[in-house]
Design a protein around this nucleic acid. Structure first.
Lengths: 202, 202
DNA sequence: GTATAATTTGACCGACCGGTCATCTTGTAC
DNA sequence: GTACAAGATGACCGGTCGGTCAAATTATAC
């Protein structure tokens, strides 16, 4: 069972890297199998289809993310606004490291997949949407605390949290198009300037 | 010659719609030809390759954009901040109309292509980057005017302009992932809250 | 040791991909 | 009307795609 788990894990990790570095459509099962040192038949023993692989990759990445530097960035020991800066920094260093390795900025796997296949596959779209919602919730919590602390003036924390996530994704998109991680560092910190006021309740 | 131009234009328009609504990789030459009522050989009479078609589509869309509602939005008769709101509105109505037609929010063609193929094709990446630079220049000009007018406090207009473009792209990305154009309307106006201060010149 | 299930192997499939090409038709110029 | 080029036709190509499968191998349970 441990060997099997290893094979599945190897497929997953390989697919994740390839999808992230290129795109879903551009990476074939054959290539994944070759790099993961797995036969095609074995692949289909673990994954019913390429689609299912994609969903497993999304889940896997979301997990790593949530327990990795996102957990660090949103550490409650940090002040809310520090968390935002930490998050931006983490994205910057990650993208820079990836570029040094591969020569290209891969951007955000979720953003990439969202724009590539969310118009074609409702299930994957919903999955990616859920990932974004979870990410947005982190921002939301930080903002709630920041308002409580008096670090920032009261605002619509929920809408602003989503706006901040959108901004971060947009910055990564632009940085990827420039193939320059520095864009993240120069534009990223402005995430703290984004404000959506409370809706009027008249 | 006018007939030929029409054929080429028909290919271009069809490809643009299909690439926008789905993705570059997902749309085949054959499908484009069928919808455009053109034979495959004719296609290759006008376009050397699918890649070249993609570049022509980018140029064509950028042109339409620049002379279409972007020109309207950034009309100098409007106050700078009004231009931003106009731009957001235009995106909202466009996406909403597209969703009503096709059932799905297509998002921004440039953003879509950037995330899908900019890691694979340096020339296309550069082309898309140029489009973004032009868009950013529009924001830049508006911000310059706004600062002159005293509509907003002085800031790093160039960096902020790019940040605003990033935000807009991010908002569209999130809206597409939710398949809900209303996201553009609810988050979009916050574009005016983004600020990047002048770098310290000590 | 034997039965059973999990895993691996690699040949194989039809469909479709981007792209080619010889041939035919149409428009243009004189 | 004749010559020439631009455009249209559709059969065709090798390669790759996601996916299948029967048979062989390995691990597990008793």
């Amino acid at each position: 069972m441990s060997i099997a788990a290893d094979t599945k894990e190897r497929i997953l990790a390989t697919a994740r890297d390839l999808f992230h570095g290129r795109s879903y459509a551009d990476v074939g099962i054959k290539e994944i199998c070759t790099l993961a040192k797995v036969q095609k038949g074995s692949f289909y023993h673990f994954f019913p289809s390429k689609r299912d692989l994609a969903m497993a990759v999304i889940d896997s990445m979301a997990d790593d993310w949530a327990h990795g530097f996102v957990a660090e960035a949103f550490d409650e020991a940090l002040s809310p606004l520090e968390r935002l800066d930490y998050m931006v920094d983490a994205v910057y260093f990650w993208q820079k490291a990836a570029k040094n390795l591969e020569g290209r900025m891969p951007g955000c796997l979720f953003g990439n997949l969202a724009l590539e296949i969310s118009t074609r596959d409702e299930v994957i779209r919903a999955r990616l949407n859920a990932v974004f919602n979870k990410a947005s919730a982190r921002f939301h919590q930080a903002l709630e605390e920041a308002v409580e602390n008096g670090e920032i003036r009261p605002l619509d924390t929920e809408a602003t949290a989503t706006a901040m996530l959108a901004y971060l994704e947009g910055v990564i998109l632009l940085a990827k198009t420039r193939n320059d991680p520095d864009v993240v560092r120069s534009l990223g910190p402005a995430i703290k300037s984004i404000r959506i006021e409370h809706r009027q309740t008249n």
